[in-house]
Design a protein around this nucleic acid. Structure first.
Lengths: 116, 116
DNA sequence: TATAGTTACTACAACAGATAAGGTACGACA
DNA sequence: TGTCGTACCTTATCTGTTGTAGTAACTATA
């Protein structure tokens, strides 16, 4: 079993913003990084990724700019995080901790790996 | 800030099934228990709760039966978990642990309370 | 007596993130 | 020639959640 769209919903934005924190990036790269950082456990769908880009740009969390592949000069759309995006990311991190605390109360003991 | 509908989506079912594990229950009771167990951090909406009941009954995870309030004899709809529901719950617990592992890779260090 | 609050639901429309299906374009490799 | 990888986009659809509203009976308070 993998990760269903319902449980990951709402964290795609967080993952993308995390990866944009230190440097601008683009779709294909972000996609690869999510796959690698999650140890192949989560592969974001292309449409999910690009719809997240559009949504977050509309909300002012990221900005797009035209760039190109430095190796072959092919056009590429880059995204950079905005100040609002950084704030949003931090809020999402806090929300994650709150959500985790709540959800774990409803997870069976034998599954609560980091039970406290 | 609270917990948004996007991040809790998919866990409502899990919470309800957790509470049905040991005994049948009904809407209002489940609602109160979720509020209390989460230390008032999460209050499930009535419509969310009843639509979850309907969905899960349709999927065979729970069964409803007519009962009554033992104090005043008023009618009440009870729900009990099925075998399929128990299996589903355990799968959801496993999925939660997988999701947690993945998401935490994308949460800033200073927020990763239980970082390991 | 009136009002508010609690219990216990149901119906319906709308929202929004995720997704399936499909398209475009180019280079590399067999 | 065909497939694979890179890079991205459009459109329509799905589904859990939610807002709004309604029903109905009981209880406590003013």
């Amino acid at each position: 079993m993998g990760i269903s769209s319902d449980v990951i919903r709402g964290y795609n934005d967080t993952m993308i913003l995390y990866l944009l924190q230190n440097a601008p990036s683009y779709g294909y790269e972000i996609s690869k990084q999510i796959r690698q950082l999650s140890d192949e456990k989560y592969v974001i769908k292309e449409t999910t990724l690009y719809s997240a880009f559009n949504r977050m740009e509309k909300n002012g969390y990221i900005e797009s700019f035209a760039g190109e592949n430095p190796e072959n000069g092919k056009k590429r759309t880059y995204y950079r995080i905005t100040e609002a995006g950084r704030v949003y990311y931090q809020e999402k991190c806090e929300e994650w901790n709150l959500t985790k605390e709540v959800v774990e109360k409803f997870i069976a003991e034998e599954f609560a790996v980091g039970a406290n």
